[in-house]
Design a protein around this nucleic acid. Structure first.
Lengths: 198, 198
DNA sequence: GTCTATACTGTGATAGAC
DNA sequence: GTCTATCACAGTATAGAC
């Protein structure tokens, strides 16, 4: 088994994917041409096709990566003891979002693309489900520790609240993408206001 | 002044815009070709250019219309007396959204397009601001009537809470677009859970 | 004055010759 | 691995039919 070749292959795919991500972030999915990507990657036209079958595959991988990156910030949840309240941990999580590459404009673009792209839509559905599940798990812990609910009751209440909490995060993404700048802090403060009553 | 011509002109623009909306909803902004739109409208290529200067102008108009349609549902707010609580009126408003044409997938696509389209981004910003303002005005009324806050205090609190409430609605749009079906009711119930503590 | 049919021009993705 | 030709198709303009 040709080891070098395999590593090289993976490295090249990464490099191409990075380039594609940058181009899409700058110009959008359809306006980003293979020529742009190729130039950004510092390769020549034909080379790309050795590693990616075509633009379609590249599109899906870019979308998948953007969406999956969102999962990374979920680590914040449930780390600290005692379990911190949602009004602290959720805004913290949102504040961490824009730090990741090219966020949040690109996430909106991926959503838009996914609407008419079945494979991406599947990925989006799955990620949203994952995020909701993680948030629900955190909420359950919090409800148990601060309200003394028994596990079942806490789980039920957590499952009820989780989708809206995720929605709050999605709203943040939308608003930051357009209003930018000062809205970020205003929104976080607003989210705190809503969450601290939970 | 040729009256017929003017009416005709407006009717044709509507017809073309409807066709474009349908095509965009089906295939997305970039995949919807002028040929598609022309066919959907039952016209021939050249005719369109008598009414729309080009695809760019059509794109902007489609986006503007989709986003402006969102304003219509704000009527629910402030209709009833006594002022109903957010946990009732906000979900009611969200439930009304999917009834409007092609919603919500197309809204997501417009957002995605607007990210790299300055004029559309401006429209999006403005609509979000409008919606936030209306929600804040409603919240102020509600806070005054149920908490006996003085107008200034109520206005401040309303302004603080409004962005997150709008975010809740945007989250609904995202989740319904992908998960579809049953998520709608679950989300509304979830939003009620969050809002009823306000 | 409106619309149809069709032709023009640029650009993009891709494949195949170096 | 690169460079360049090909081929399809998009947006647009125009020439004439009703």
């Amino acid at each position: 088994m040709p080891k070098v070749s395999e590593e090289h292959r993976e490295a090249m795919r990464q490099r191409i994917l990075d380039a594609a991500l940058a181009c899409v972030a700058r110009k959008g999915f359809s306006a980003a041409s293979m020529a742009d990507i190729v130039a950004e990657a510092g390769l020549s036209a034909g080379a790309v096709y050795l590693y990616y079958k075509g633009k379609e595959q590249l599109t899906v991988d870019v979308g998948r990566r953007v969406l999956e990156d969102r999962l990374a910030i979920l680590e914040v949840l449930g780390r600290a003891r005692p379990v911190p309240p949602p009004s602290q941990v959720i805004p913290e999580m949102m504040a961490g979002l824009p730090k990741t590459q090219f966020f949040p404009g690109i996430a909106l673009q991926v959503w838009g693309e996914a609407v008419h792209h079945d494979e991406l839509a599947g990925v989006a559905r799955q990620i949203i489900g994952d995020v909701t599940g993680h948030i629900a798990a955190y909420l359950q812990k919090w409800l148990q520790s601060t309200r003394g609910l028994d596990p079942d009751a806490a789980a039920a209440e957590a499952a009820r609240l989780a989708p809206a909490v995720v929605g709050l995060v999605q709203g943040y993404i939308v608003q930051v993408a357009f209003a930018g700048g000062d809205i970020g802090e205003r929104y976080l403060e607003s989210a705190r206001g809503v969450l601290e009553r939970l």
